[in-house]
Amino acid sequence: MSTVRPVVTLGRRMPLIRYLLFRVLGAIPTLLAIVTISFFLIRFAPAGPFDRARALPADVVANLDAAYGLDRPLWQQYTSYLRDLAHGDFGPSFRYKDFSVTELIREGFPVSATLGAIAIAIALVGGVGVGVVAALNHGRFVDHATIGLSVVAIAVPSFVLLPALGLLFGIELHWLPVAGWDPTSIRDYVLPVTTLCLPPLAYIARLTRASMIEVMRSAYVRTAFAKGLPLRTIVLKHALRPALIPVASYLAPAVAMTMTGSLVVETIAGLPGIGRYLVQGALNRDYTLVLGMVIVYSTLLIAMGLVVDLLIAALDPRIRLEA
């Protein structure tokens, strides 16, 4: 005997499958709009991928333009880009010779995504833990210390933190490698993951603390106290779930941001991720690479938005999912 119970409580009008279908189909025009705007924005930026301080001979430029299709009218380039995109082809990179954008992203994304996912997971567990402890000690030393440290963690930039950590744990103590990448060696992960996870951890701690303080003052938590329940039950069963709603909302941009890599961290630690492609691609006018990165980032953001909405609906049964 088995009963099927929906994971998410939905409005009676909209079953989960239909809701998901709506959201996924709804993402297509959004992505198309993002791609279109980005395509023309980067094209209208002055200079092109083959411009150098010393100008190339005119016939070389003409050959390059012909090879990459830049000699055709812009709208034709746009439609042919979309056609290739529909077949899953992001086009050739203008700067990384002999590499397609698909290859670049396929190689780099797992590195950035792995580091980012680990960092966000640690930030989530650690941040919620720290935030709850701070909230339960509201106004006391632990609370003030948490606030103070979180400001530091958010404010110190990664280009200061990572070298500082490398100096201490790599060069002084010889505990960890300063840079380099071997996916099978956990030791290589420690410093970049630490650098990546501290700001979101601090931010999640602050979000959790603030909402937890509010929830602990709510009437239903007072009822739970009046029922004589132990503090552990009150916090974990009654207070934590509603307190996590602001954290869930923050997760969408945080995950998309962290999993697409960090230019600073990956450059300093010598990691073969995709963190540098967006900035470098834009500076080099590597049109296809920029667009590829924009697509990866926005897809991740849109997907996380959906995940977060489901998560919030799961946290609060009063919320109905409606497209």
Binding site: A219, Y220, V221, R222, T223, H238, P242, D316
Partner: peptide, 11 residues
């Protein structure tokens, strides 16, 4: 308590 609207845990 006074306000039954808020005195029960919503989730």
């Amino acid at each position: 308590f006074q306000d039954p609207q808020t005195a029960l845990t919503p989730h």
